[in-house]
Design a protein around this nucleic acid. Sequence first.
DNA 1: CGAATTTCATACCACGCAGTATATAAGAGT
DNA 2: ACTCTTATATACTGCGTGGTATGAAATTCG
Lengths: 213, 213
Amino acid sequence: MKFDPDTIVAPNSSHQGSSHRGRPRQFCPDAALTAALKVFWERGYEGASMAELTEAMGITKPSLYACFGNKEALFRKALDLYEKEKLAYVRAGLTAPTAKGVAEAFLRGSLAMQTGNDPRGCLSVVSAVACTNYADSIRDEITSLRLATDRAIIERFERARDEGDFPPGVDPAAMAHYLTAILQGMTVQARSGATPVELERLVATTLAIWPGR
Amino acid sequence: MKFDPDTIVAPNSSHQGSSHRGRPRQFCPDAALTAALKVFWERGYEGASMAELTEAMGITKPSLYACFGNKEALFRKALDLYEKEKLAYVRAGLTAPTAKGVAEAFLRGSLAMQTGNDPRGCLSVVSAVACTNYADSIRDEITSLRLATDRAIIERFERARDEGDFPPGVDPAAMAHYLTAILQGMTVQARSGATPVELERLVATTLAIWPGR
DNA sequence: CGAATTTCATACCACGCAGTATATAAGAGT
DNA sequence: ACTCTTATATACTGCGTGGTATGAAATTCG
């Protein structure tokens, strides 16, 4: 029976539940995946070579392939991790009391991501924009991920409209796409070297202009 | 003496001034460069292979290298062509009478580019975001290009402030970066499959929110 | 201990990439 | 007509890529 690469289990640094025949793996898959995410994040899918990845992950190629499948599967898992960990502020932001509060939470969350130690820019944006020749499955996953968050923001803004957060005549869906456009633009600017101060000013400007509460 | 690839001259379809020793070239460099631009535009620099380029340009590899130098030089010339032809609306937009007029010209110009037959998205944005491992010279050229237009917009908005286009307390530079962020976000959304109607709505929303005249 | 099983390390493979050597074709100058 | 020059076509090179074969090391089960 073959090893199932879809299930990452038993990082050997933490407590190991059921014992395991054969030689134990000498690295922590979670840590390795985190390292891989960082590489994909700054180099893009095609820009990240297996050599770079294995070096950053601190493992050899056969270990990588045995544990994660292939490059595409690795990227997919890294993308899952990204959306799980790094995009927490999206889910959190949706709980803000007003539409403007949601916008502020998103903008500040995105800003915090740019000023941290992580690579600049949003992995989803980078992956969506860069090269047309990604594997179709990857493109599909990225777009479906984007559609899901778009949908969530739209629904949140529809509620906001019903609660009177917007001036009359404002379309919630339009405001949602407007907000995501600014977030994406912020990613592009961060990616091309904008300073944290400039990004902070972008946040402030957007909030100053924001219609309603 | 070697042929200087920096000067593209004598497309053989148009009138040919001074005659030319040796076998005449059997393609039009301008048309070939336009075809190359299209490929770079939709695939990115690294995503475009020489095979794709030569096929789209309708010439063979030695012809390409003889005429344009190498891949990097070809991209550089394509980028020049892009900024000269496709970004004409930027220079035109700067002449609008008010700040909001400038914003509208940029937004509509960018929108028109997305709905045309050309590849989606802005080549500069794609090139800026995608892969970190471009040749340094290319990155430098792209950023200097971006800085130049940023500077132009900022100066135009400073004039707009002096002319009273903005409400008091609005920073022209901040508004410039805000506007470019939206344009960049529009590119990202167009690149990831947004419909012209959605982009049109983004333009309308931005203009509806725009402070001042 | 010995057998089974799984991971690790080194070396390797086929392929696509950017770029080129070489020989031939097509024109201009004399 | 003959030479000189430039472009074209075909075939090639060296290299980096994603992915793998193979054998040794490390563990559990009997």
